[in-house]
């Protein structure tokens, strides 16, 4: 810090009238303000570090968050697995799986229908080929 007398003398040389002004502070602050200010600052610095560190892992909110995160991971893993359906020993994407499924259903229907119609046709052919007289004989 500089010597206040030197500063005053310097000012007196530049502006004698300004040097006469009483510099006493004309602003005010609420009573006990500076102690409250210290408390507030310490709360946000020194104390905040400790509270933050101690309470972070011990608070119920953090525990609940951790549990929710684990549950989320399990669900996510399940969804991920369901994406890889096995069809005829092949790993398939959901779209391919859907197509395979539709195809297989159609195929079964087709085969069943075709078999039925083939059976029907064969029976009809045999029946057509057999002489109606023999049938009548048998009957």
């Amino acid at each position: 810090m500089s010597n206040p007398k030197d500063i005053h003398n310097e000012l007196k040389q530049i502006s004698p009238r300004l040097a006469e002004i009483d510099k006493k502070e004309n602003y005010d602050v609420p009573e006990g303000y500076f102690d409250q200010l210290s408390e507030e600052i310490l709360r946000k610095t020194v104390k905040s570090n400790r509270i933050h560190y101690n309470s972070f892992f011990s608070s119920n909110r953090v525990k609940a968050f951790a549990a929710a995160a684990c549950l989320g991971l399990i669900i996510l893993a399940g969804l991920r697995l369901s994406h890889h359906k096995v069809f005829n020993n092949k790993e398939l994407t959901p779209e391919a799986f859907a197509l395979e499924y539709i195809d297989s259903e159609v195929m079964v229907d087709f085969l069943l229908t075709h078999q039925q119609s083939e059976t029907d046709n064969t029976e009809n052919q045999i029946l057509d080929e057999i002489d109606e007289n023999i049938i009548l004989e048998e009957l």
Binding site: E25, Y27, V29, F34, L37, S38, L42, V46
Partner: peptide, 15 residues
């Protein structure tokens, strides 16, 4: 140390 520094300079900084 920080608490002491705060006590010493809080008013100067504020004003």
């Amino acid at each position: 140390a920080f608490t002491q520094l705060l006590k010493k300079y809080r008013e100067k900084v504020y004003w």
